[in-house]
C-alpha cells in the first residue's frame, strides 16, 4: 500500500478544517458577538476558527490543483507523482507507532517505570539483542529515571500497582 502526497495533503486539510469548524461551533455556544464590556468570550476563537477553515479550504483546493498538474505532467513525461509513504516506510512507521501505542497504554495501567522498562527491553530484543541484555537495558533505564526524577529532582512520576509493593510511593 502506498500513500500519495495528494492523499496526505487532502487528509491534513480536512483535519485542520474540521478543527476550525469545531472551534467555531464551540465558540458559538459561548457567544461570538459583543456585550457592554467588550467582545464575548467566543469572539476570538470564532474568528480564528473561521480563518483556519478558510486556509484549510485553500490548501484543499491547492492540493487538487497540484494533483491535476502532476497528473497532466505524468501523461506528458511519464513521471509518477511522488509517493508520500511507500509500503516499506509505512510498515516501519506502523510498527514503531504500534509499539509506542502499547507503551502508552502499559504506562497508563502499570506506571512509567514498568512501561518504559518493558518498552525498551522489547525494542532492544526486537532489534536483535539477547533477551537478558535487553531486559537489563530496560531495567537500567527505569532505574536511571527513578534516580534523576524522584531522587535528584523530587518529582514523582506516574506509578502503577507494582511500585507500592516495593515500598516506592
Amino acid at each position: 500500500m502506498t500513500v500519495r502526497r495528494f492523499h496526505a495533503e487532502i487528509g491534513a486539510a480536512i483535519v485542520t478544517g474540521a478543527l476550525g469548524l469545531a472551534a467555531m461551533i464551540g465558540a458559538t455556544e459561548l457567544g461570538v458577538g459583543w456585550e457592554e464590556s467588550g467582545p464575548q468570550s467566543g469572539y476570538f476563537p470564532f474568528y480564528v476558527g473561521l480563518i483556519l477553515v478558510g486556509a484549510s479550504l485553500w490548501n484543499l483546493v491547492a492540493a487538487f490543483l497540484a494533483h491535476r498538474a502532476t497528473v497532466a505532467g505524468h501523461a506528458r513525461t511519464g513521471e509518477a507523482e511522488e509517493p508520500f509513504l511507500d509500503s516499506a516506510r509505512l510498515g516501519r512507521l506502523g510498527r514503531f507507532l504500534a509499539v509506542m501505542l502499547a507503551f502508552v497504554i502499559v504506562t497508563l495501567v502499570m506506571g512509567i517505570y514498568v512501561g518504559s522498562a518493558s518498552y525498551i527491553a522489547y525494542s532492544a530484543w526486537r532489534g536483535g539483542y539477547r533477551p537478558l541484555f535487553a531486559l537489563a537495558m530496560g531495567v537500567g533505564f527505569a532505574l536511571a529515571l527513578y534516580l534523576v526524577f524522584e531522587v535528584a529532582f523530587l518529582m514523582p512520576l506516574l506509578k502503577g500497582p507494582i511500585e507500592p509493593l516495593l515500598g516506592i510511593y
Partner: peptide, 20 residues
Amino acid sequence: IPFAIIGPMIVAICFVGGYT
C-alpha cells in the same frame, strides 16, 4: 548507538517529560 536502543529511549524520555 543502534537505533533499536536509542530510539525507544528518546520516545520514553519525551513521554516522561510530557508527564512531568
